[in-house]
Design a protein around this nucleic acid. Structure first.
Lengths: 249, 249
DNA sequence: CGCAGTCTTGAGACAGATCAACTCACGTGG
DNA sequence: CCACGTGAGTTGATCTGTCTCAAGACTGCG
């Protein structure tokens, strides 16, 4: 059990295995999963493309990522070439989710969906070809259930977010976003909490279906209401999470 | 193989089994699934509550259903008592999805999510306790993969819908909705198509994040544009699905 | 220190929500 | 079979929140 000081790679795999339910029968399964998985580091801003041939299951070890979807008509994306040449059609991009350490991410290779996983900070992940992962997981009831359970939870969260986006005001959406970030980045559910946002205003806007201007205005409003304080560009101090929670509705 | 004339119940189970991938090994699995599943008819308007103890997997044999989510603050729903006593807070309800024959539906028992499955028409379904379904499916690689694949697809569709709802105009959303209904209710992807909508304008509005008035106005607009014709309250004739598809963007 | 890009702030426009009145479809009971 | 009532749907007038366009301020990097 006591592991020797391990290489980053091994450490990543260990983190992944630790997140799975540990059953008596599964140490062999873990070994097999280690062989199928591929450890990888991702520099901030770099990405995994959606046009991969096979579906992938990704375990996020460290850092933060976003999943970006481009709609069909805005497909004429520049290839991220010079970085910052804002194509007007880029306005129509959308962030499906942010991810934090310990999460499973499913990248599926759907016809129209040009989906990309982009690192918001330097990140470490373990990549599995989906079918090969299943080949191994098949033999371990606990693991396969874990994967199904995660998948169902993702669906549930997606639906909850849909509710949020559809029937809530900009102020409510931002409040909800901040509470969620407090949980993910500051591990707090109440009181006050300080952390650094890994994403830009545009990322926030794109994930909530708003514009950067509206996001900025709401940050200003919350500051006026003494609910938050901004620290430079990305630093953030939430003063009363419970009240923010209430604002989110 | 040649089945005797079967009771409705048996027919329902057969329809369910037929939807699964048929592998050589699985006839025994089917028998076991039949034992775990519970066939049930649902009268139009009646529902399966979310406060069930265990997660459920539901297979829709016939009819149409909607999955309704009530947000936390509108929890003071009247218990559907006299049916039609419109509580003002009912405005804040949302339809997560419509379902049509052949679909798998997952009802999860989440803390805040007061989720209900309601029949839009008389419907027939097969209910499985999720964990018992998995107990059986576990032994059949093809089936467990099928379930995972369906689940992942649901997630994908949810994300696609999120895109739709977030960045599209009312006209685009309705166009997309109509095309989708043509596929589900009329089995057509192009040309013209006639069918009866099983849901009300309010259902449509709630599923697209609009108001009934806006939905109504868009129907009127499409009629003026010679894209659709309404036949009474629920009858609908789509005149040019391709053009509607284009309108959806 | 200066530049580039992000973020903030303001003024105006517009899509869709809201409020309100009206019409119509459909089922019920005479 | 038709008259009637009720809830669904339509249509119109107005209002509001968010987007859009535009200018300016700040961060953080080279």
């Amino acid at each position: 059990m006591a592991t020797l000081i391990s290489s980053p790679e091994t450490a990543g795999m260990e983190a992944f295995c630790a997140s799975l339910p540990s059953t008596a029968t599964s140490s062999k399964t873990f070994d097999r999963l280690r062989k199928v998985g591929h450890y990888r580091k991702l520099k901030s801003g770099s990405e995994i493309r959606g046009h991969i041939r096979r579906d992938r299951l990704v375990f996020l070890v460290a850092g933060a990522t976003k999943m970006v979807a481009a709609t069909a008509n805005s497909k004429a994306f520049c290839e991220h070439a010079v970085a910052g040449f804002e194509n007007p059609s880029e306005r129509i991009s959308h962030i499906l989710a942010f991810h934090f350490p310990g999460e499973f991410i499913t990248i599926i290779n759907q016809a129209d969906g040009d989906v990309r996983l982009t690192a918001l900070t330097d990140a470490a992940l373990v990549l599995f070809p989906f079918d090969r992962f299943l080949d191994v997981a098949q033999d371990d009831p606990a693991i396969i259930r874990h994967v199904i359970s995660r998948s169902v939870q993702s669906l549930y969260r997606c639906q909850a977010r849909m509710l949020q986006i559809t029937h809530k005001s900009a102020r409510q959406r931002i409040a909800g976003f901040l509470v969620s970030m407090a949980r993910n980045l500051g591990s707090c559910n109440s009181g006050s909490c300080e952390f650094t946002l890994p994403m830009t205003r545009k990322d926030i806007a794109d994930s909530l279906g708003l514009t950067i201007e509206t996001v900025s205005r709401q940050f200003a409003n919350f500051t006026k209401s003494n609910l938050i304080k901004t620290r430079g560009r990305n630093g953030l101090l939430l003063l009363d999470i419970s009240r923010l929670q209430a604002e989110a509705g």
